[in-house]
């Protein structure tokens, strides 16, 4: 911009403000030119076609849209995409390695930690953030860490078990061995 302001005719419609953002998603830098009001969840789902991140409530309560933002869980439905510019985002699509599932994914399957599957990606990412900072959480710590993610199907008990299963798999020296 050459000056601090520009005089325009009164009936000119405002240009919709746009900005280019670059976000590292699951380890890969991705760019888009977006309206600045675009929500992060829509950048991921609609621009980058990563539909594993779901949207359930629009108001930060249900947690279906949870992604990791520089490793911390955030609700992508109430974050602007421009706020993620230059940051690292992990979605459910980035959980598994090239050939094998993340232990949290395995745990959710083994312990029947999901039913309809809609809350599952956000739930697993909140669980990952927990296990990344606390490899051996007790039940209360797990329940507290997941309290920003609503599930209507499971009653949470098996989700807790799923996280415990993953914790054992990731840190076999802690707690009990993984039971087959």
């Amino acid at each position: 911009m050459g000056s601090l302001f520009e005089v325009v005719p009164a009936d000119t419609q405002d240009e919709v403000p746009r900005r280019r953002v670059t976000v590292t998603v699951n380890g890969t830098p991705m760019s888009a030119v977006i309206e600045t009001r675009l929500l992060l969840v829509h950048l991921l789902r609609q621009a980058f076609k990563l539909t594993g991140t779901h949207m359930g409530c629009d108001t930060t309560h249900c947690g279906a849209c949870t992604v990791l933002f520089d490793g911390k869980p955030v609700k992508s439905c109430t974050m602007l995409a421009v706020q993620a510019d230059g940051h690292e985002i992990t979605t459910v699509e980035g959980l598994a390695g090239p050939s094998e599932l993340h232990p949290i994914q395995e745990g959710f399957k083994e312990e029947h930690g999901l039913q309809c599957g809609f809350c599952t990606p956000g739930m697993m990412l909140s669980a990952k953030a927990l296990l990344d900072r606390n490899p051996d959480p007790d039940e209360d710590e797990i329940r507290w860490a997941l309290s920003g993610n609503l599930c209507r199907c499971t009653g949470y008990q098996n989700i807790v078990k799923s996280v415990q299963w993953a914790a054992r798999k990731m840190n076999p020296q802690q707690g009990q061995e993984v039971s087959e």
Binding site: R45, Q46, L50, T51, G52, T53, H54, M55, T91, V92, E93, L95, A96, L101, Q105, F108, K109, E110, H112, L114, G117, F118, T120, P121, M124
Partner: peptide, 21 residues
């Protein structure tokens, strides 16, 4: 038996209405 449908849900590969374009 462990659930067949979980294989897609835990990978974020479910196919809900809003996922369809």
């Amino acid at each position: 038996r462990r659930r067949v449908e979980d294989n897609r849900f835990i990978r974020g590969k479910g196919n809900y209405v809003d996922d369809i374009t």
